[in-house]
Amino acid sequence: MTKRKPAEVSMQILFLLCGLVAVAFVLLITAYLIAAGLPAIRQVGLASFLFGRTWDSTNETDPRFGILPLILTSVYGAAGAIVVGVPIGLLTAIFLAKAAPPRLAGLLRPAVSLLAGIPSVVYGLVGMCVLVPALRAWLNLPAGDSLLAAILVLAVMILPSVIDLSAAALEAVPKEYEEASLALGATEPETWFRVSVPAAKSGIAAAVALGIGRAIGEAMAILMVAGNVANMPSLLRSVRFLTTGIAIEMNYAAPGSLQRQALFSIGLVLFLFIMLINILLSLTVKRGKEV
């Protein structure tokens, strides 16, 4: 027996360290967010921070740090994006995985990945210059910057991930299921909707969860179309999300001020939201694998 060469051992340790870097980053991010986010929450009070209906951080005499409007806006925004985006995304995925002639699918696939690659500021710019004025004109609003505009932009932005994951799940449905359904005299569309989609449901659920995560996490595009006033959410009014709540004040909040600390507290809340969704996501994926 020879001893393992020192080079081998040190490389193994080096690779282990690389692997642990990801874990270290997650811990670091969590620790820093908690450390930076807690002071303001402690000062404002957890209940009045989470459930306060007024965000008025720059009021010199009586600043208010209630983020309920931000939380609700993020929830409604994500829900709206899902309601608009998931049906279109799922139908497109069925088309791509089942109905499309191969040539057309070959064109649509790169189109979807291009849609995924477009920077969010470009979506924001187009939303700002096309969607917002259009909404103002059609709905006769004083301003088109609104939750509705943000929902529409988010719906487009979550499309690629919903399509990608759902199509992959649909393609993985065993052919035997579809054959059995066709042999019973079901038509192709009936087979896709009544056998393929239910059989792919855990993958589709994961696609929706990913879409929710994207919608909650998006900042730049909606910063450009939502108007950014911290109103309680209403479809046609200007609103502020958790992400944009941080973004809009980040560059001018004085270091060390309660305002700046409160922004980190919003970050902590956002982080907890996302972790919750991630855990749900990995649970749905796991359950899907077991069935």
Binding site: S181, A183, E190, R194, V195, P198
Partner: peptide, 25 residues
């Protein structure tokens, strides 16, 4: 009708499997 080489019930309940055809029609 057709029965395949490998048993291929849908990933649904026994009842829904058998009711699938009549419902389709």
């Amino acid at each position: 009708g057709m029965v395949f080489q490998k048993p291929n019930p849908f990933p649904m309940s026994v009842y829904d499997n058998v009711a699938y055809g009549p419902r389709t029609h």
